[in-house]
Amino acid sequence: MKHILSVLVENKPGVLTRIAGLFARRGFNIDSLAVGESEKPGLSRMTITIDGAEHPIDQVTKQLHKLINVIKIRDLDPDLTISAELMLVKVRAEGDKRSEALQIAEIFRAKIVDVDRNTLTLRVVGTTEKSEALLELLQPLGIVEIVRTGPIAIARGRP
């Protein structure tokens, strides 16, 4: 099972290295990691997704907690969580492919953010599953490049 960890950290030099280093040393694989400033000055919030079947999740969180710069960790309940990632994807769009690509974009409410003679670049925001579904449909057209932020996540309602 995938776990989404929301980790509040001090925004200090080396914090990302410490977290990445900890994961590497203990043999935990990160599926994705997104980080940015939080609502509190001097603190950043990271969203880390990790495969819980592969690693005992309580070891991961306990080891993370030992880092002095880590302030708070929440293992988000997927049912009570809003999560979204941003994806940019460039597809081949010569001839007939162009209208097909545009149609798919329309269905997924993806924005066309760049166009040239041979390609289209789509921007989509949504769950990881949505990105995956879009990619599956675009695959036959020929995908040139994919860039994804990995999900960021927030618990529903009040804390």
Partner: peptide, 11 residues
């Protein structure tokens, strides 16, 4: 990094 409890680089 992997062998300290914590570390500082003083700036």
């Amino acid at each position: 990094l992997p062998i300290v409890k914590h570390s500082y680089l003083v700036t």
